[in-house]
Structure formats: C-alpha cells, structure tokens
Design a binder for these strands. Sequence first.
DNA 1: GTTGAGACTGAGACTGAGTCTCAATTTCAG
DNA 2: CTGAAATTGAGACTCAGTCTCAGTCTCAAC
Lengths: 153, 153
Amino acid sequence: MGDEVQIFEDYLKKHALHLTGPRETVLRSIFGTHEHFTADELIAHLQRAGTPVSKATVYRTLSLLSECNLLIEHDFGQGKKYYEHASELQHHGHLYCSDCGRIAEFYDPRLNAMQEKLARQEGFEPVSFAVKIYGRCADCAAKQARRDSGAVS
Amino acid sequence: MGDEVQIFEDYLKKHALHLTGPRETVLRSIFGTHEHFTADELIAHLQRAGTPVSKATVYRTLSLLSECNLLIEHDFGQGKKYYEHASELQHHGHLYCSDCGRIAEFYDPRLNAMQEKLARQEGFEPVSFAVKIYGRCADCAAKQARRDSGAVS
DNA sequence: GTTGAGACTGAGACTGAGTCTCAATTTCAG
DNA sequence: CTGAAATTGAGACTCAGTCTCAGTCTCAAC
C-alpha cells in the first residue's frame, strides 16, 4: 500500500487526469483490504465507512485502475465483474464453487508458458490469461454427499 | 445433427418435460449452423427465419440445453453469454481478440490434465474448465502496427 | 378419442449491473 | 489567482436476462 497511490498518480498525470478526493477514497478502500470484490460491494463498503462515492465515479475509477493494471477484472458468468489486486502473484488461475460462490486460487508457471505458446501458434498476441475451473469446493462436495446418502431419490 | 434431437428428447423425458414445437425450433436452429452465438443473435435469427420464438422461451431452452450438456456457456466479460456446441472438441480453450471480438480456439490435452490435478490439489471437484486468452489477433495486431508507424505520438 | 394435471408459451413487466448525461464543482498549470 | 479542462453526483438510461401469469399445449391414463 502506498505504492499503488504512486502508480495511480503517475498514470493520471501522464494522461492529464486529476487525482481527486473521490478517486483517492476509492483507491484507499480497495488497497486497504479487499482481495476479491464486486463494484456493488465496494460501493456499499464506502457507504458504510461514511465516505460515500457515487456509483458512476466508482465504476469510472475501477476502469482507470484496470487500465493502469492495478486491478484485474474477472467474470465468472454471474452477470457482474469481480475485481482483484493485480499486485498478487501474477497469472494465477481461479477455482469457482458453483454451489457457494467461493473463489480459490492456484498457480503453476507451466500453465502460463503453455498458454503463451498456444496463443502464438494461432497468431495471437496474448495480453492476459484467465483460467477458470468451475466445480464444487470440498465443503459443498461433503454437504452434497451427505444430502445424497440422507435422501435417496 | 439428429443426434442432438435424440439426446434432448431423452433428457426431457427423464425429467417429465415436453419436447414442444418452440423447443424443437430452437434446437434445430442452433444445431443447424451456428458455432458461437449469443441469445440475442439466436432470437434475431429465428425472427428472420420466420419461426419466431419468444425471448423467455429461448432463454429457457438455452438453459435446458446447457443442463443436458449439449451447449456450453462462455463469458468473455462483455455482459452477455456466448453459447457453443458441446459436441465440438471437448475442453478447448478460447482466444478472444479484445479489438475485434473474434474468437479462435486451441486445444492441448496437457492443459486439461494439468487443470484436473490443480483443482484436486485445492480440494475442488472440477466440473468444467474455461481457459481464455485475451489479446490481439494477427489482423488487429497488424492494423495496430500500421497505425503506430503512421502516426508517431 | 377424450380428459385433465401439469408443463409450456408469449408478452411484457421487472431486475440489476453497468453506462451516460449534464449542470454544478473541483483541479491545477500558468 | 484564474480559467480551461477534468470531475462529480444524481438519476435517467441501456441491455441481458428473469419472472409472472393467463391462456395453450402435451401426453399418459382412461
């Protein structure tokens, strides 16, 4: 934390944009804690924290932060985007539990190398990767097993 | 084609559902041609073909087809879902051109094996995988290069 | 073939994430 | 300071997708 403010400020300056109060509020809220979050959650959090920022401004700031690579957008097909700090381990994949929505992460450098190669083979110039595995987390699998044995259909 | 009708019919019967006219219209339209398509495109296509089916029914049918694994849903973060025939090569990944929206595919069996292993390591019971690479396709990369050399900022 | 329980349909209201508009306000280079 | 340009918030808007509900259709059992 702190680093991000600097990076964001540089990015803004380079593009003749201003580091304003609302933008800084959003930035600090994001890099103060949250790991994975949605725009909605962030807006609610700011509200609760007594530093409300309008929906439009939050979305605009999230776009800026994605553009300067401080945030990464993720979409699990729920009709809304999840954001994550880009400072974390680069290019890890996500495990998404279709039952409870829990998100876990994994990392394997070979996965990235393989993807880079495959993209080039198709003539693509890769910019970012997204590996998502949908399934059931250990907890939900156990719950399901219990349910199955309890009530045989 | 034909196979799908059978599979769908079996699935419906097993769940005490009916194979109705609208459902068959949708099914035939999907497996008659389209490879990647959105709900919107399908609705428009049915309209143009003179066999309109209401939005609600189309969405309901798409859900059914996904449930019985005849279709696979994809989300590239554009706020809408893309559908693809599940009969194609299983578990291939997608390359999405952020400039023109073109979608290409690639396949590598090692990718799947690796994902299966990684999921299990985290205690997840994987159901499906989605590997997406965002970047620029050959055409758009060339266009960009031309633009860059033409007008040095 | 009739029948009726329950599945299905279409039209359009609704939801919810995200975008746009615009008048009023803020920023910062000069 | 000053003013051009960027920014803001409120709320209207968009658009994919879901829901509702009255009327319709399906099909298994007569």
